[in-house]
């Protein structure tokens, strides 16, 4: 049939266009990787040529000068501890708001949700002042607590929605078996929360890992990956061979994380976005 032949041809052209576009889309990443293997003078000659050899000196410089491994572990510790805190406080609050039969529960939810209208930059200056007053600046525990405060509204909302979808009969049977409310939460409700906790973890992990401004204000030292790259950039201005090596080495961990949990991350982001 000529119709379907034409259709097939059309589809093949379309696929080719998409593939070419995809390759162009990766161009910035390809350019960064290529130039990370060049010496400075090689980039000056051309920034779009292939590297003449596998020159690894740039990576060595970045790892040593930016103290990469220390910074990397700081970022991991910061992200993991913030997420653990966010999950614990949000799961508790989300459960309580979903089950508490008082009007005040909805009011509390609204107070938390109103934060979503407020841009970070509106509280940025006074948050730094308040954090200083409370001794929460210049250290990781302070930063973790602030992440807990700023990231909990969305997470509480997600946990609350999840708890509302659990049939209350489960908890009622727990009460008949003699559980008090703390046992009820701990033994019956929280174990059911694993999937929603994973969603909350994924949404927050990418954000905290890549966040620049809050750690920049609170820590004021190059202690996480984005911060250390910013300082490094300021120090080695125009030394693109080093900056590109910095890009590659600091992007690898998050890309590996993404590939290992791809399905999960995309599901989490979609459900997070839709519920918002």
């Amino acid at each position: 049939m000529p119709e379907s032949k034409k259709n097939k041809f059309y589809k093949a052209i379309l696929a080719a266009v998409v593939y070419i576009f995809a390759i162009c889309y990766m161009f910035p990443v390809i350019i960064a990787v290529l130039n990370s293997f060049k010496e400075k003078r090689e980039i000056l000659i051309s920034a779009v040529s292939l590297p003449s050899s596998l020159y690894l000196e740039n990576y060595k410089t970045v790892i040593l000068k930016a103290d990469f491994f220390k910074v990397f572990f700081n970022s991991i510790a910061l992200t993991v501890s913030s997420i653990v805190l966010i999950i614990i406080i949000s799961a508790m609050a989300g459960y309580a708001i979903a089950r508490w039969r008082r009007k005040v529960a909805n009011v509390i939810m609204l107070i938390f949700l109103s934060a979503m209208f407020v841009p970070f930059h509106t509280v940025m200056i006074t948050l730094l002042k308040t954090a200083k007053d409370l001794g929460a600046t210049g250290n990781f525990p302070g930063l973790v607590l602030i992440y807990g405060a700023l990231m909990c509204p969305t997470s509480i909302f997600l946990f609350r929605g999840f708890v509302k979808s659990i049939p209350i009969e489960l908890e009622e049977s727990g009460i008949i078996d003699g559980c008090n409310i703390f046992n009820l939460a701990l033994r019956i409700v929280f174990p059911l929360m694993k999937p929603i906790s994973a969603t909350v973890a994924v949404i927050n992990a990418l954000w905290i890992w890549n966040d620049f401004l809050l750690p920049y204000l609170i820590l004021a030292k190059p202690l996480t990956i984005p911060l250390s790259q910013m300082y490094f950039y300021g120090k080695y201005n125009q030394q693109w061979h080093l900056i590109m090596a910095g890009f590659v080495i600091s992007t690898i961990p998050i890309v590996v994380f993404f590939f290992s949990m791809q399905k999960f991350i995309i599901k989490g982001l979609v459900s997070g976005a839709i519920k918002n």
């Binding site: 990443v29 620049f212 984005p226 790259q229 890009f247 600091s250 992007t251 998050i254």
Partner: peptide, 9 residues
């Protein structure tokens, strides 16, 4: 993929 990268970098 670009979405998981740090904005600064």
């Amino acid at each position: 993929l670009p979405n998981v990268m740090s904005l600064i970098i």
